[in-house]
Computed example of a mutant assay.
Amino acid sequence: MGELWPITKITLRSARLLRNLSLNEVSMHVKISARKISYYERNVCATPLDVAITLLDFYGVPFYALDY
């Protein structure tokens, strides 16, 4: 069985940084502009649920661990 995610919540930005990924690297893989990802990370605009799931899946973080 895989390891369980810690109880602590994580932000989208923290999840990205834990994987040592730049905004541009993520942008290329998930087909969302780096600027938009930055907006979501800084809570400039609401993150759509489907985008949050896509990013978390790419980062390898379970949805329940997101500090949304």
Rank of each mutant, 00 (worst) to 15 (best):
R35F: 01
L66T: 10
L56G: 08
R16M: 07
V51D: 09
L17Y: 03
G2T: 09
L55Y: 10
T8N: 15
P6W: 03
D67R: 15
I37T: 08
L23G: 07
M1P: 14
E41N: 12
R19Q: 15
I37A: 05
L18P: 00
P62T: 03
F58D: 07
Y40P: 06
V26H: 01
T11E: 04
S22C: 12
I32D: 10
S22K: 15
P62I: 01
Y64L: 11
Y59S: 04
R35I: 00
L18G: 11
A52P: 09
K31M: 08
T11M: 03
V51G: 06
P48Q: 13
A65F: 00
I37H: 10
S38V: 03
L56I: 09
Y59H: 04
T47L: 14
V26E: 08
V30I: 15
N43E: 13
V30W: 05
P48F: 14
S38H: 09
D67K: 15
D57G: 15
I32Q: 10
I53R: 09
R35A: 08
S38M: 09
N24F: 00
D50L: 10
E25C: 07
A65I: 05
A15I: 09
F63M: 10
Y39L: 04
P6K: 11
N43V: 02
V51A: 12
N20M: 12
L18D: 14
R42E: 13
V44F: 01
A52F: 06
V51M: 04
N43G: 10
S22Q: 12
L17V: 07
R13W: 01
T8A: 13
L4S: 07
D57L: 09
I53W: 02
H29F: 12
N43S: 11
R35N: 04
L18M: 13
T11V: 02
S33V: 08
I7D: 12
L18W: 03
K31A: 08
C45H: 13
D67T: 05
L12T: 10
V44R: 01
I7R: 15
P6M: 05
S14F: 01
L49I: 13
R35G: 02
T8C: 05
V26P: 05
N20G: 11
A52M: 14
I10M: 06
D57E: 14
G2H: 05
